[in-house]
């Protein structure tokens, strides 16, 4: 190409990663069905259960603090599951993923952009919850607590991103959002992310350790000073095994359907 012979390489190796992430974030932010739901759900639930209801009860401040941590988890789980499962399932069904696979896009850029986008939304939700908690709920966290909670939010995206990838391989693409809601909402409730588990029947409390959301929720409340029944290492190990299992199974399913396609 005559112009390229004199011009330096127009794009760097990092460019596709940066552009992919920028546009993945932008398009989900603009898609109101995504942004309003993933940000709106945790925010409105927190305002209701964490601030309005809590302010009328004794020990309400404590509850506002506790729920700020669990609704941050609820938020990041939503942005991870919707940001990976429904986008991948749709893009696969509609041929868009195939066009990208045929292009010279680095395959890692595709997943990484979605992961970083999920983290970005998780952090935005956490920031908004913190703002509401501090201003309306009179919650006060130390800088160390905020940093630990932020770290939990960022790292917590990984297990649910892998779960999202796995779900993308199994749910019917047209109904991906419905299926995700069907798993996401009950699982969050049963893990004590909406209201503390103490208010639920005992058998539901004993069942809690089967939900990945419970493990991350425990780590989140621990990071702001609450005690947990398991050790930090125990929860982290559980979530790590869970992530690896999801990713491994997704890989098997993806390969199998790629051969059939």
């Amino acid at each position: 190409m005559s112009t390229a012979a004199v011009a330096p390489a127009a794009t760097s190796t990092l460019a596709p990663f940066a552009k992919e992430t920028k546009y993945e974030f932008l398009r989900l932010l603009r898609a109101r069905s995504f942004s309003v739901a993933t940000i709106g759900f945790p925010l409105s639930f927190y305002l209701l259960f964490g601030i309005v209801v809590s302010s009328a009860e004794p020990g309400g401040l404590d509850r506002s603090k506790y729920l700020l941590a669990t609704y941050s988890v609820f938020g990041l789980v939503g942005s991870s599951l919707f940001g990976l499962c429904s986008t991948i399932a749709n893009e696969r069904a509609q041929g868009w993923l195939e066009l990208k696979q045929a292009s010279p896009m680095p395959p890692a850029a595709y997943l990484l952009s979605k992961l970083l986008t999920a983290i970005a939304f998780g952090v935005i939700i956490f920031g908004l919850l913190l703002l509401c908690g501090e201003t309306m709920g009179h919650v006060h966290f130390t800088a160390a607590q905020i940093l630990r909670l932020l770290g939990t939010v960022v790292l917590g995206v990984f297990p649910f991103a892998t779960m999202g990838i796995l779900l993308a391989c199994v749910v019917p693409p047209n109904a991906a959002i419905g299926f995700v809601n069907l798993i996401y909402l009950p699982m969050s409730f049963l893990s004590g992310l909406w209201i503390p588990l103490e208010g639920l029947p005992k058998w539901l409390r004993t069942l809690a350790p089967v939900w990945p959301t419970w493990h991350l929720g425990q780590l989140a409340v621990h990071s702001i000073g609450y005690t947990m029944s398991w050790s930090v290492a125990g929860h982290v190990a559980w979530l790590t095994v869970f992530s690896i299992a999801c990713l491994g199974l997704a890989l098997v399913l993806f390969r199998r359907s790629a051969q059939k396609a």
């Binding site: 190409m1 390229a4 011009a7 390489a9 127009a10 794009t11 460019a15 596709p16 940066a18 552009k19 992919e20 546009y23 932008l26 398009r27 989900l28 603009r30 898609a31 986008t87 749709n90 893009e91 069904a93 509609q94 041929g95 868009w96 195939e98 066009l99 292009s103 010279p104 896009m105």
Partner: peptide, 23 residues
Amino acid sequence: VARVPETLAAGEYLDLFRSYYPH
């Protein structure tokens, strides 16, 4: 392609795909 993610502009898609190529 039955459907392309709808909330990006045509020019943004060009910008994205251009980044995949060296020249």
